[in-house]
């Protein structure tokens, strides 16, 4: 917990222009498009799209911040120091991923503020308690995805080069716009394997107080935990490889 607060305090770089854009301005752009498209057809349930705009920004922020959390350390040559530190590498990456997801909340809050006060959308959150609960579940799933990304990117520069390419497909795949249930079987399977899909589903279900909301949250937590354990063992392995060979090339 202490690590988490320190991480947010010292390592969140609000001067990064990319982050500024993702957190503060991107929700505004998506909401503007929604606002004007709404004029084409009036009977639109805007809640879903306010949420979508928040999710898009949250996901982009997590992708760019957590994704590059380790790889930038590799470039600065501080990764070695990190591994030599008494705190385990896993704890360090997890805190980074967690703190980035928490920061990403800014864009969610802003999305709702923009939606309410600039665009005059009605936002019907039926039950704030459940809604907050589902947000916590979402953040957990986002953190786990961020964690996995950080590991994959640092292990392979090749994958990192294609970072931009997964930005939009993930949003589509996780059911932000179109419910996953309507996907073809193969896509559905892939989507259900991503923890974020469940996190997003939890929030969407809670928004309309769907009877499945608790089961969605439960599944989301379970899937996230599975990835968390997986990540734990991979990071342990990375640590061993690093100590042995002194480089990450072997992975």
């Amino acid at each position: 917990m202490f690590l988490l607060i320190r991480e947010i305090k010292y390592f969140t770089n609000f001067n990064n222009k990319m982050y500024q854009f993702l957190l503060f301005f991107q929700p505004l752009m998506i909401l503007s498009i929604v606002y004007f498209l709404k004029q084409v057809r009036g009977d639109i349930n805007s809640d879903k799209f306010v949420l979508a705009s928040a999710l898009i920004s949250m996901w982009s922020y997590v992708l760019y911040s957590s994704g590059s959390a380790l790889i930038s350390q590799k470039w600065n040559d501080t990764l070695k120091l990190l591994i030599a530190a008494p705190v385990s590498l896993f704890a360090v990456i997890l805190t980074k991923a967690l703190s980035n997801s928490v920061i990403a909340l800014i864009s969610m809050i802003l999305s709702f503020i923009y939606a309410r006060f600039i665009f005059q959308f009605n936002i019907g959150i039926a039950n704030y308690g459940y809604f907050l609960l589902s947000i916590v579940v979402l953040i957990f799933s986002l953190s786990v995805v961020g964690l996995i990304l950080a590991i994959v990117f640092v292990a392979s520069q090749n994958v990192f080069d294609f970072q931009n390419l997964i930005l939009t497909p993930m949003i589509l795949l996780c059911g932000v716009f179109i419910p996953v249930e309507q996907f073809p079987v193969v896509l559905k399977l892939i989507a259900y394997l991503i923890p974020m899909t469940w996190g997003i589903k939890s929030v969407q279900d809670t928004l309309v107080l769907s009877p499945f909301m608790f089961s969605s949250m439960a599944v989301s937590i379970v899937v996230s935990l599975i990835y968390l354990f997986l990540a734990y063992f991979i990071v342990k392995k990375i640590e061993v490889v690093l100590r042995k060979t002194g480089s990450l090339g072997a992975i």
């Binding site: 998506i30 799209f49 179109i178």
Partner: peptide, 16 residues
């Protein structure tokens, strides 16, 4: 292509 799909989905889920 992804970019087109993204906005096509956004718009068509809004207006058809």
């Amino acid at each position: 292509f992804m970019h087109y799909v993204f906005f096509a989905t956004l718009a068509s889920s809004l207006v058809g």
